[in-house]
C-alpha cells in the first residue's frame, strides 16, 4: 500500500479513538443534562424527599454531602500538606524513608475505594468506635456504628493522596532562588517553609483541597457501610448521626427503589446535581493547576 495512504488510515484510526472517547463524554453529559434539567429547580434542591422518596427533593443529600466533604477536607488537608512538605523539603530523594512514603501514597491512590470502606468499618467503627463506646459510654452503642464522622475520616484517607500530590507539585514549582534568598538572610529551614514556601503554595493547597472535595463528593463505595443512610427525615445533628449523600442517593434510587420508573426524574436530576458539583469543582482545580504549571515554566 502507498505509504501516504497508510499514514492517513493509521492517523485516522487514532483520531477516531479520540473522537469516540469525547463522544462518550459528551453523551454522558448530554443525557444527564437533558434528563435532569426539567426537574432541577429550587424546590428540588431545598426539599426533603416525600411520599416514600418518589417525590420531593434532595436537600438532606446535598447537606450530607457538603458536611461530609468539609469534615473530610478538615481531616485530609493538614495531613496532606504536611506530608507534601516532608517529601518536597525535608526528605532526600534517595532516602529509603522518602521512597517508602512515596510508595505508600501511590498505594493509597490505587487501593480500590471499597477497601477503604472495609477499613473504615473494621478500624474506625469496629476498633476505635467500639472502644470509645466501651470507655466513654459504658458500652452503650454510639460511636461503634456507621456515622458521619467515620465516613468522613474514611473518605479523608481516600483523598489524602490527591492532596499530597497537588501540594507537592506546587511546592516544587517555587524557585530555589526564593528559598536561598530566605536562607541567605539567616532564616531557618522552618522559617523559610513558613514564610516563603507555604505562602507560595497556597494555590496548590487550594487545588488539592478542591480536587479532594470533588473526589470525596462523588465517591460512594467508601461510605456504603460507614455512614451513608437510605433515608433520613431529619438532618444529621451530631457527628455520630448517619447522613444522606448525593452519590448514595443515586445508587439507591436507581437500583433499590420500589418503583424505579416513577422516580426517574429524581434520579436524573440528582445525577445532574452531582455531576455539576464535581464538574465545576474540577474545572476550578484544573484552571488553578494550569496557572501553577505556567508559573513553573
Amino acid at each position: 500500500m502507498d505509504r501516504n495512504v497508510k499514514d492517513t488510515i493509521v492517523e485516522g484510526i487514532t483520531g477516531v479513538s479520540v473522537l469516540l472517547i469525547i463522544f462518550i463524554i459528551v453523551s454522558i453529559l448530554a443525557v444527564t443534562i437533558v434528563g435532569g434539567w426539567p426537574n432541577l429547580n429550587w424546590t428540588f434542591l431545598s426539599e426533603f424527599p416525600k411520599d416514600g422518596m418518589t417525590k420531593g427533593g434532595i436537600f438532606p443529600a446535598i447537606v450530607g454531602t457538603a458536611v461530609m466533604t468539609i469534615i473530610m477536607a478538615v481531616a485530609a488537608v493538614p495531613f496532606g500538606v504536611i506530608t507534601a512538605i516532608y517529601l518536597a523539603e525535608y526528605a532526600s530523594e534517595k532516602s529509603v524513608i522518602a521512597k517508602t512514603i512515596r510508595f505508600a501514597v501511590k498505594t493509597l491512590a490505587v487501593v480500590p475505594s471499597i477497601i477503604f470502606g472495609l477499613f473504615g468499618l473494621g478500624f474506625f467503627i469496629g476498633f476505635i468506635g467500639k472502644n470509645m463506646d466501651a470507655l466513654l459510654n459504658g458500652g452503650e452503642l454510639k460511636w461503634g456504628q456507621p456515622n458521619m464522622l467515620w465516613a468522613s475520616f474514611t473518605m479523608a484517607l481516600l483523598t489524602l493522596p490527591v492532596v499530597i500530590v497537588s501540594v507537592e507539585e506546587a511546592i516544587r514549582t517555587i524557585p530555589r532562588e526564593m528559598r536561598e534568598a530566605s536562607l541567605a538572610l539567616g532564616a531557618t529551614k522552618w522559617q523559610t517553609i513558613k514564610s516563603v514556601v507555604l505562602p507560595g503554595s497556597v494555590s496548590g493547597i487550594l487545588t488539592g483541597t478542591i480536587l479532594a472535595v470533588s473526589r470525596g463528593a462523588g465517591e460512594v463505595a467508601p461510605i456504603l457501610f460507614t455512614g451513608a443512610a437510605y433515608f433520613l427525615s431529619d438532618l444529621p445533628k451530631s457527628l455520630s448521626d448517619q447522613f444522606m449523600s448525593l452519590g448514595y442517593h443515586i445508587y439507591i434510587m436507581s437500583t433499590q427503589s420500589s418503583n424505579v420508573d416513577a422516580t426517574l426524574p429524581i434520579q436524573f436530576a440528582t445525577t445532574l446535581v452531582l455531576l455539576l458539583l464535581t464538574f465545576s469543582l474540577n474545572a476550578v482545580a484544573v484552571t488553578l493547576r494550569f496557572k501553577i504549571r505556567k508559573r513553573a515554566k
Partner: peptide, 18 residues
C-alpha cells in the same frame, strides 16, 4: 479526556444502567 476522570463512578454507573 481527563474530564472523564472527574466523573464519579456512580454517574458512569447510572449512565450504563439507563
Amino acid at each position: 479526556i481527563e474530564l472523564l476522570a472527574g466523573f464519579p463512578s456512580v454517574v458512569i454507573g447510572f449512565f450504563a444502567l439507563m
